[in-house]
């Protein structure tokens, strides 16, 4: 069994600004942890600290019991055995797919390295493309070569920085599932940095939500989605309606003063029996679901309902909230 890769109270500051602020995070073997956050949340810096591309100002990075980074020393990236996968794939343009994968296998010797690299390409369905140069490969193929290259040297952990965002949306899900399957099969800790909550929820086992340099919440993906600890965390996992207590239409929910109501669009349900009435301002088909913009008592609410139940714009409907998808938090600003 592999070791966990852990950050223990690590901080990193640029020009006095703490971009990563006393973060502790445990990456468990065989599990994909998504690090989710907007730009500037500090997630890429945290990845760089794990990778040893930057020293820590406070705290430690450990692999099992072994200290990789501390305030005193930083083990260089080439000594860490931690695989990296980048948004731009970072394939060496002057090497073929096979040579790219074999790059990290140098200690095996030339022949063994080639054989091993060929094996990895085969595993990812790239046998035919072994002699192609990166610019001759499609985006999905490049992604798979990058995965193979990172996994081939049998790293102790793997870190992925927005690895799928460069891909064609149509391809993204299938490439991602294949790639993460290979990562999970390696049985090592894996970190997936992403700004896309859908990706985090669909692809990761574990989610850590980062904001303002701190990890605000972590846990199994469904837990975090269903039980956010703050309005901000809720918002970073997907779109929400946020209403201050005073603005909540009567009868919709009981909200005490000094708190706010946070409801996911799919938590806004249509119910003709409800006494809370709303006017449909807009109705937009987004796929299986239809997005409604509602006006209820002067407040705008966004609802997501199955397409076959969707009213037309201009209609009056009754609404109620799904308690499982509605949260009440203390107001951010008093």
């Amino acid at each position: 069994m592999s070791d966990s890769l852990s950050a223990i109270g690590v901080s990193r500051a640029y020009h006095g600004v703490r971009v990563v602020d006393a973060v502790s995070l445990d990456l468990k073997p065989g599990m994909v942890t998504a690090l989710l956050g907007g730009s500037g949340a500090g997630k890429s810096t945290l990845l760089r600290l794990f990778a040893g591309l930057e020293p820590v100002d406070e705290g430690e990075i450990r692999l099992g019991d072994r200290v990789l980074s501390s305030t005193k020393t930083t083990l260089p990236p080439d000594k860490r055995r931690i695989g990296l996968i980048f948004q731009d794939f970072a394939l060496f343009p002057h090497l073929t797919a096979l040579q790219n994968v074999a790059f990290g296998l140098k200690p095996l010797g030339k022949e063994a390295a080639r054989a091993e690299a060929r094996g990895w390409l085969g595993r990812l369905g790239l046998t035919e493309r072994a002699d192609a140069y990166p610019h001759e490969l499609s985006g999905g193929e490049q992604q798979r070569v990058a995965i193979a290259r990172a996994l081939a040297p049998k790293p102790a952990a793997i870190l992925m920085d927005e690895p799928f965002s460069g891909l064609d949306p149509a391809l993204r899900a299938s490439v991602r599932d294949e790639a993460l399957e290979a990562v999970r099969a390696a049985g090592i800790p894996a970190l997936l940095v992403t700004h896309d909550p859908v990706e985090a929820l669909e692809a990761a086992d574990h989610v850590a939500v980062m904001r303002g340099g701190k990890v605000r919440q972590e846990g199994p993906a469904a837990d975090v989605y269903m039980n956010p600890v703050s309005a901000d965390v809720a918002a970073s996992l997907g779109p929400v309606n946020r209403l201050a207590a005073a603005d909540v239409p009567a009868g919709l929910a009981d909200v005490a003063d000094g708190t706010e109501l946070v409801v996911r669009p799919e938590g806004v349900c249509l119910d003709s029996s409800s006494g809370v009435r709303a006017n449909v301002l807009a109705s937009q088909v987004t796929g299986a679901m239809t997005r409604l913009v509602l006006n209820t008592g002067g407040q705008r609410l966004v609802a997501l309902v199955p397409r076959d139940q969707a009213p037309k714009a201009g209609e009056d409907v009754g609404v109620r909230l799904d308690p499982a998808l509605s949260f009440i938090f203390p107001s951010a600003k008093p």
């Binding site: 591309l53 000594k79 860490r80 695989g83 970072a90 790059f103």
Partner: peptide, 26 residues
């Protein structure tokens, strides 16, 4: 991209090997 160098390092390439096998050909 800068990530090429990081990729090389993450694959265990020493700075010298990185210079010789990645930066130089580029």
């Amino acid at each position: 991209p800068a990530s090429l160098g990081h990729a090389a390092e993450s694959l265990g390439a020493s700075p010298l090997r990185r210079a010789r096998e990645v930066d130089l050909p580029i």
